[in-house]
């Protein structure tokens, strides 16, 4: 290429690339933006143009007992799932990182099945297995269902940081007299903590958004936010659903930001 000024085809190429990127981004963002706009619309229909703004759908969302019930259920499930999936997934990742483990690839593939298999299949399967053990329509059943979907995400994120962990750090700790447990607590855990935290956020988000397995396993009274939205969207479409969706979107953005902050390079440089 010639000098600092870019040639015409090159400039045209850059413009084309920018246009394509913006188009794809707009396509991805449009549904979310429309939902957020409708949630603030004063009239109760899903049509443009928007003539007046209002917070009344939010008021309705936060004052209707069924919605609040669903929100509370969703949060309880998400927190329980996170508390269960994070240690399980972390331990699995640690086990998979052990150099002497036989059949590592097979075990790893089995662990990741819930992430790859169609969720409907997983849901149907869980329904049959759980109904045999009396776990359907119970909170423990829902938590277990969500946990099995969330564990693979924790395994993947923790495994990623473990592969970056220098074995010699552990050797150095051992040579200085630290027992394997102390080495884990003082060296391994602090170094992989950002990975564990981002795995936990994925687990939380997985449970919060989950609808398919919930549909199969939940009892009639066990509303969750996505399930309630699904029901409402099918029966009586009210803008309250847009308000609920906006709340979920906001929560997702917070979680995503948190996970990006945690996984940015040098995040563990400050204690």
């Amino acid at each position: 290429m010639s000098g600092p000024r870019q040639s015409l085809p090159n400039r045209f190429g850059r413009f084309g690339l920018g246009l394509a990127a913006v188009t794809v981004l707009a396509f991805l963002m449009a549904p979310l933006i429309i939902i957020v706009l409708f949630s603030f619309k004063s009239s109760g229909d899903f049509t443009f143009p928007i003539t007046g703004w209002s917070l009344k759908w939010y008021r309705e969302f936060f004052t209707t007992p069924t919605w609040m019930d669903a929100l509370r259920n969703s949060l309880v499930l998400a927190v329980s799932t996170t508390l269960l999936a994070t240690p399980l997934g972390t331990m699995a990742a640690l086990g998979l990182a052990a150099p002497q483990l036989p059949g590592r690839r097979l075990i790893s593939a089995l662990l990741l099945i819930p992430m790859i298999a169609p969720v409907v299949i997983v849901g149907v399967g869980m329904y049959f297995v759980f109904s045999m053990t009396g776990l359907t329509a119970t909170y423990p059943g829902l938590i277990l269902g969500h946990t099995s979907l969330a564990v693979p995400f924790v395994v993947v994120t923790v495994s990623a940081v473990l592969t970056g962990l220098d074995r010699r750090l552990l050797w150095a700790a051992a040579s200085m007299g630290a027992s394997p447990f102390l080495t884990f607590r003082k060296v391994t855990l602090p170094v992989i903590l950002p990975g564990i935290a981002s795995g936990a956020l994925f687990a939380f988000a997985t449970s919060l958004d989950e609808v398919v397995v919930t549909m199969f396993l939940a009892g009639p009274g066990q509303r969750t936010l996505p399930r309630e939205m699904f029901t409402i969207a099918r029966d009586t479409l009210t803008p309250t659903i847009a308000a609920a969706a906006t709340v979920l979107i906001a929560a997702s953005i917070v979680l995503l930001t948190a996970s990006m902050v945690l996984s940015r390079p040098g995040a563990n440089a400050t204690r």
């Binding site: 150095a172 003082k186 060296v187």
Partner: peptide, 21 residues
């Protein structure tokens, strides 16, 4: 005898300093 009971100091080419300390 496991390494942590040997009372030896080890220095590696890659330094192996704990990055979080």
């Amino acid at each position: 005898l496991p390494p942590h009971k040997r009372d030896m100091g080890v220095v590696f080419q890659s330094y192996a300093l704990f990055p979080h300390m």
